[in-house]
Amino acid sequence: MSIVSKSRPAGADALAGRPGPASPGRRGLTLKRRDQIAGYLFIAPQVLGIVIFVLVPLALVVYYSFQEWNVLSGSIEFVGADNYTKLLNDPQIGQVLLATAIFSVGIVCTNIPLALLLASLLNRSGRGIAFFRTVFFSPVVVSLVAWTLVWGFLLQDNGGINGLLSVFGIHGPNWLQNGPTAMASVIVVQLFKNVGLNMVLFLAALQGVPRELYEAARVDGATGPVLFRRITLPLISPTVLLTVIITIVGSLQVFAQIAVLTQGGPGLSTNVLVYYLFQQAFDFHHFGYGSTLAIVLFVIVLVLTIVQWQLRKKWVFYEN
């Protein structure tokens, strides 16, 4: 800090149109160089964090994807593209990718509209509003495993949900034992866990929409649905983009719910890519193939995010 506070502004010489001074600084460093060092020191913790916890693991995953690592015998053998060939010939990968796609589409198609609906309903003042906002947000801060375990009990054949249905004379299905209902159950568990977060983001966005725009539109004769489509939606579209991206990325990384509720079953119906990757690496000890699957997941997330980022120009409205 002392170096920066005692030195001249970094761009002062450049702005003055003259070359940097022949430095009178400490240990012969020019002011410019000292400012650069100070800058690097400031960003060092962040850069080191990214290097150690993001870039190195990423590099290792790429490295392991070309190896066959037998954990028990401790041997690591270079196998070239064998793991990638195995990926292309894996008879289960198609079903795993399908389950991943169904889960992600299911989450995005339910989470975003529900979060927006809740935010619209709770975007008003009045008694009890704070209570309802807290209720809908509270699952976000609950332990994921605890939340999932409770849902596991509720979804049992003789669990709470079927008990409630039986009060109305409905014989509920064995939720986690049939493919379609198991997938629907996992989606619902994830939906209610995270919808509160998107709701809060939408709530903040809705409160940022200027009231006078609505008043002006009403003077012009616009009504509810038109106001929403022509004013609300365009003005909160940056938030819609943000929530869609984080919801898709989050849905592609779902693990605990699958591990606790279904272990990927019945059959492969809820075996999403992250769970399959975990099975291959940690249950079956195929760390090389598991790393290959991790790269597939990375590429999918990267491509989807880039596509959304590019498409934003077509539908996201920025006031500035």
Binding site: Q177, G264, G265, P266, G267, L268, Q279, D283, F284, H285, H286
Partner: peptide, 15 residues
Amino acid sequence: AEIAQKVKTALDPMW
């Protein structure tokens, strides 16, 4: 472990 998982997955329709 891998055989156990494959058998479990294939046996699921039994139940």
